[in-house]
């Protein structure tokens, strides 16, 4: 059964696109057919992070408007044959994205993929609401700081009100993906702690991705972090998150928890 996932956050720059690529690659590595769909019309980035920017011929808008067939617009990843990209248009107006058109594309994708991962634009406008509209599951990407948490809270409210599932009276499954988590700064109180974020948002935790230069390096190389350096901490965290999405039980590790404990001891002694 195909599952449609929306990766959303409200706030920009928290790591939606990076997370879409990393989760998509991790699910594809399991051998399941996966497509990542860029909904950020006019500000597309997913093609860059996936390293496919020079292979874009047709895009989501072309398919929505019937100028191209879905199979023509889909780009198969060169590293993983189970991974595909449906890029956004960089030049077209986002008003070309219609509710009916998007529904048809998603329905077609459901026929041939196991996972459809939609990368939502920032904000709460049309693009974001269209990206979430047909989702079965939402991954809410949040940084451990107050503005990101509040925006995520707003998005969760919209997920419960403006999606097809909500309108049918069903419950949208929502998961929190905490990104750019820096255990040292959380310990010092410069950042919200995991428990604080969970307490405010009250949705289940999918994973905690540590702040790492590996993520930035992978993005710049055009490789999802789960493909570039399979053993680095963020890649492991994303892979665990993907396994949890697929329904596996994986124990949650809070980055630097042991180090945090030792810091506490030293901190007390110093004081």
């Amino acid at each position: 059964m195909a599952k449609v996932i929306v990766v959303t956050s409200g706030k920009g720059g928290v790591g939606k696109t990076t997370s879409t690529a990393a989760l998509g690659a991790a699910l594809a590595q399991r051998g399941e057919k996966t497509v990542v769909v860029d909904f950020d019309v006019g500000l597309r980035n997913l093609d860059l992070v996936m390293g496919a920017e020079r292979r874009v011929v047709y895009d989501l808008i072309n398919v929505v408007q019937g100028d191209a067939k879905l199979s023509q617009a889909l780009i198969r990843d060169k590293r993983l044959e189970t991974l595909h990209l449906l890029p956004a248009s960089q030049t077209r107006d986002k008003d070309n994205l219609t509710a009916e058109g998007v529904e048809k594309v998603i329905d077609d994708l459901r026929k041939s993929f196991d996972w459809i991962i939609c990368d939502s634009p920032a904000g709460i406008e049309r693009g974001a609401t269209l990206a979430m509209r047909h989702a079965d599951v939402a991954v809410v990407v949040t940084n451990p700081e107050v503005s990101s948490v509040r925006d995520s809270d707003r998005i969760i409210g919209l997920l419960d009100a403006k999606t097809k599932k909500a309108e049918n009276g069903e419950r949208m499954e929502k998961h929190l993906l905490l990104t750019r988590y820096d255990p040292m700064r959380a310990e010092r109180g410069d950042m919200l702690k995991v428990d604080d974020v969970l307490e405010i948002l009250s949705i289940p935790l999918l994973g905690i991705i540590p702040e790492s230069t590996d993520v930035l390096r992978a993005s710049n190389l055009g490789t999802p972090v789960t493909l570039s350096d399979v053993s680095c901490a963020p890649a492991l965290a994303y892979r665990d998150a993907a396994r949890r999405l697929a329904g596996e039980q994986v124990a949650m590790t809070v980055p630097g928890e042991r180090r945090g404990f030792i810091n506490k001891l030293f901190g007390r002694r110093a004081a």
Binding site: R150, D151, D153, R154, I156, G157, L158, D160, S202
Partner: peptide
């Protein structure tokens, strides 16, 4: 019965 979210 639900939490009241930001913006609601």
């Amino acid at each position: 019965t639900e939490p009241v979210r930001s913006g609601q």
